[in-house]
Design a protein around this nucleic acid. Sequence first.
DNA 1: GTGAAAGCGCTAACAA
DNA 2: TTGTTAGCGCTTTCAC
Lengths: 342, 342
Amino acid sequence: MVTLAEVARRAKVTGATVSNVLRNPQKVKPETVERVMAAIRELGYRPNLTARALARGRTSTLALMLSNIANPFYPEFVLAAEREARKRGYFLLVCNTDDDPAITRAYLEQIAGSLASGIIVMNTDLGEGELTDVANRGVAVVLCMWEHVQPSRTLPCVTIDFAAAGALAATHLSGLGHRKFGALVGAGSGGPQTIRLDGFARALAAHGHSEKSLTVVHAHDSLESGYEATMGLLHRKPALTAIFATNDLMAIGAMQAAADLGKRVPDDLSVVGLTDIVLAHQFRPALTTVRLPTAEIAARSIALALEMVEGGTSTQDLYVVRAPELIVRESTGPAPSRRRRA
Amino acid sequence: MVTLAEVARRAKVTGATVSNVLRNPQKVKPETVERVMAAIRELGYRPNLTARALARGRTSTLALMLSNIANPFYPEFVLAAEREARKRGYFLLVCNTDDDPAITRAYLEQIAGSLASGIIVMNTDLGEGELTDVANRGVAVVLCMWEHVQPSRTLPCVTIDFAAAGALAATHLSGLGHRKFGALVGAGSGGPQTIRLDGFARALAAHGHSEKSLTVVHAHDSLESGYEATMGLLHRKPALTAIFATNDLMAIGAMQAAADLGKRVPDDLSVVGLTDIVLAHQFRPALTTVRLPTAEIAARSIALALEMVEGGTSTQDLYVVRAPELIVRESTGPAPSRRRRA
DNA sequence: GTGAAAGCGCTAACAA
DNA sequence: TTGTTAGCGCTTTCAC
C-alpha cells in the first residue's frame, strides 16, 4: 500500500504538505502542488480513508436504517439518497432491520461505535430514547418520514404532511360522487399509518360524509396483505365503491382482489393509493395515487444529516418537505350509478 | 467518547487486556473479564471501529457495485447479501453506478483507498483491468452474475448457468407446441444478455426448430422497454405465439403490450421471463419464468468475499451456483391451434 | 510555504 | 495472565 509518507519522500516534502495538497491546495506553492501531484500519480497513491477518518474523528459514511429494502418504496428512496450522499463525498450503508429490534439495536451499537457519522432512521420499533443515546454520542441522527402524531422533541425529522395526503385522496373520491368508502391502513413498521387515515377520514367528514360511510381495515405494507384485506372488506361491505389504501402496494393488491371478485376498476370500484411508487403507473389499470416527493425527502434527509455532521451542530427541527400531490390515473372514476345497488 | 483506555483505567488493567477481553476472552482470567465487562457497561463503551480497522488493516465493510438499485432484482439481491454480511459482522455499502464509468471509477478509487475490504461487482462497463488493479491493492474482488462468454482469468466469479436458463425456457415453449418465437434480449449493463439468448436459441435448434422460427429483438432491462420492443416485434411478426424475455421486467412489459394489442396471454401469446422477481408471481397473469437462485448467489458472493478478506487469500475460481429452475405459472400455454392463423 | 511532532483509538507482537 | 511498546496512515496545531 502506498502511503502518504512515501509520496512525501518522493516529492521531497513532508507528510503535512502532501496532506495540504490534497485538502487545501491553495495553501501550498503551485510548484510544490505540481511535484506532489506528480508523485501521487506515479505511485498510484490513494488516501487511506480509514486513517483519515480516525484522524479527523469522523467517517465519510452514512447509515440508512430501513425495515426491508425489498419493499419497492425503499429502493427508490435509496437511489436518491445515495446520489445526494455521493455528490458530497459520502457513502451509504444500507441497514435492513427486518423490523427486528435486536437487529436495529445491533446496528445502532456499531454506528455509535463510529461506523457511520450520521444515520437516517426511516422507522423503527425502538423508543426514541435509544436513538437519542446514539445522538448523544455525536452521531447525526435524522428521523425520516416519521408518522407519529407527536414529532420528536429531541431529534430532527424530515417528513411530509401525511394528513394532507390522505385528505387529497378523500377529496378526490368524494368529488367523484362516492358515498361508501373503505380504507386499508398499513402498518409496515413504526405502527399503523394512522395519520394518513386521519387525514382521509377528516376530509371525508369535511365533505359531509358521516362516520358510518367509512369502513377501516388494517393490513401490512404488502401487495398480498392488501389483497387479503380487500377480500375481507368487500365481503363484509359489498356496497363499497371506493377504497383508499395508505400505500400503493396495498392498493394494487386491492385492485387484484376486485378483479378476482368480478368487480371492474374503476367502473365498479375506485381505488386510490398513496406514495406513487414506480409500479403504480406501470400497473394496469394504472393507479390513481397521492404522490410523495420521495427523492426530495431522501435528498433532504441526507443533506440535513451532512449539515449536522460537518457543522458539528445538532437540531431538533421538523422539516416538512413539499406537499403531496394527487396523480389521477385509471383506477378511479365516477361512483357507479346508485340504482345498480341497494 | 469513551475509549478503551478509560475502560482499562476503570478496570485497573491495561488497554491490551481490554482488547483481549473483547476479542479473545478465553485468554483472560474470568474475574478480569468480569471486571472489564463491568467497566464497559458502566461507561457505555463501544469500540471505535475506525481505529480498529486502521490497526487491523481492514474495515468491516463490503461494497456492492450495481447499476441501479431501482431495478427490482437488486433489492432482492441486496436483502440477501446484507443478511449474510451482517451474520458475519460486516456492513454493506450500496454503490449505484448508473452504468456510468466515471461513477464506477470514482467508487473504485475510494474502495481502493480502503473504504471497503471487499467488493462484489455485479456488472460494469469497465474493463477487467481496472478491477484487477483494485484487487492488486489487496481488496477482495468478486464478480457476480457476470455474463461474459469468457469468465475472468484473474478474478473469482459467482454465477449461474445462464445458457441453461435460456434452454429451460425454450424447452418449455417448444413442448407446448409453439413454432414461431420472439426473444427480447436485455442489455441493462455489461452488454447484451447474449448467453441467455444463446441457450434459448440452441435449445430451440435442438428441438428441431429452424433458425427462421426465432426473431430476436434488443431492449433494456425495464418494463417500458419490454413493452416497446414487443409492440415493434408483434407488428413485424404478428404470427408469433411465444415470447422469451431475458428478464422478468421485460416479460411483464411484453404482456402489457400483448394486452394492448388485443392478444390474450396465454391463449394467443405465451410469455416466459427469466429471474423470477417477486413481481413475477404478483402480476396478473402470473408470469411463467426461469427462476434464478438470487438469494443463494448473493449469500455465496458475500461468503466468498469474506473468505478472501479473512483468509487473506485470493482465487480466480468460477463458482456456479445451483441450476436455474422453470416456474410454470399463467403466462404460458399450448400454442394456439394453427388453423387460426396462416 | 513547509516541517516537526503529537496524536486519533485500537491491535498485536513480545516481555515480564 | 497481564503489561509494554510500537505502530496503523493521516490530520493538525504550532514553529520555523
